[in-house]
Write a protein that binds this DNA or RNA. Structure first.
Lengths: 129, 129
DNA sequence: CTCCACCTTCCACCACAGGGGAAGGTCAAA
DNA sequence: TTTGACCTTCCCCTGTGGTGGAAGGTGGAG
C-alpha cells in the first residue's frame, strides 16, 4: 500500500504520515523497488490509534511514548493509565487557570461597561486594563 | 533613560523591550549620540500597560491594536471594551473545549482503571484510547 | 512521446513570546 | 591602559503539529 492510499484510508495527508515517521511515531516502512514507501495493513491501525489519542488530547510526544512501550512488546495499559492520569491533572490545572483569567477579564469588562467616556488618561493608556 | 534602566524599572529584560519595538508595540525611541536607545519617561507607562494587558490575557497583537488606536489620538476605551468582550467569548469557548476534553479523558481513565490487565490487543494498540 | 498523477528528499514557514549567544562599539573607574 | 558593564545588530533556538513548495524520479494511459 502506497503512502497516498494509506493517507486516503485514514483521512490524513501524505505529508502528515511522513511527518509521523520523522517524529518516530511510525517505523520506517518497507520500500518498493522504485523507492516508494510500502505500508502493511497494520499501519492503518497505528495511524488510527494516533488519531484517537490526539482526540483524547494527548500530544505526539505522549503518543510516541505509548507506542514505544507497545513496540517493546509490553502491553502499554498501565503506561496509558499513567499518561491519562497526568493528562487529567494537567487539564484541571489549565481549566482552573483559564477560569481565573476569565474572572479577571470579566472584572475589567464590567468596569469598562460601567465607566463614563472620560475613562482614559494618556498617562496609563487605558484604565480598563 | 537607557534600555537597561527602563528594563530594570519595569522588571523586563532588554531583549523583551527590543522585541516589543520590533513588533511595533513601542515606537522607535530617540538615540543618544553613541547610538544607544534613549527612552522618555512615558515609555515606562507604556511597558506597564503592556504587562497589565498581558496579565488580562491579551495577546501582543491585541495590545498593539489598542496602542495603535491610542497613538492615533483616539481614546481607546470602546476598542478596549470590544477586545475584552471578544476575549470573554474566546475564554468561554476555550474553557468549554477543555471541559469537554476533560470529560473524554476522564471516561477513558475510568475505563482504564476498571479494566483487567488483558486489555490491549495488538490490533488496536490500546483499547483505553 | 508526452502528459498526468504519483512518489522522493529537503528546506522553509505559521503562530506565540521571547531567549541565547556571537561579534563588535562605548564609557567610566581603577 | 585595561577591565567590566553596558550597549548595538544579527541570526538561530525553543515547543507544537504540521503545511507549502522546489527539484527531480516513476509509471501507466493516450
Amino acid at each position: 500500500m502506497r503512502i497516498g492510499e494509506a493517507a486516503a484510508a485514514v483521512g490524513m495527508t501524505t505529508k502528515t504520515i511522513r511527518f509521523y515517521e520523522d517524529r518516530g511515531l511510525l517505523p520506517p516502512p518497507e520500500r518498493s523497488a522504485n523507492g516508494y514507501r510500502d505500508y502493511a495493513q497494520d499501519t492503518l491501525s497505528r495511524l488510527e490509534f494516533i488519531r484517537r489519542s490526539q482526540i483524547a488530547g494527548l500530544t505526539l510526544a505522549q503518543i510516541q511514548g505509548i507506542l514505544r512501550v507497545r513496540d517493546n512488546g509490553v502491553t502499554p495499559c498501565s503506561h496509558v493509565r499513567d499518561v491519562l492520569g497526568k493528562q487529567l491533572v494537567d487539564l484541571d490545572r489549565q481549566i482552573a487557570e483559564l477560569t481565573a483569567l476569565r474572572a479577571t477579564v470579566a472584572e475589567h469588562y464590567a468596569t469598562a461597561e460601567a465607566a463614563d467616556p472620560e475613562c482614559c488618561d494618556a498617562e496609563q493608556i487605558c484604565s480598563y486594563v
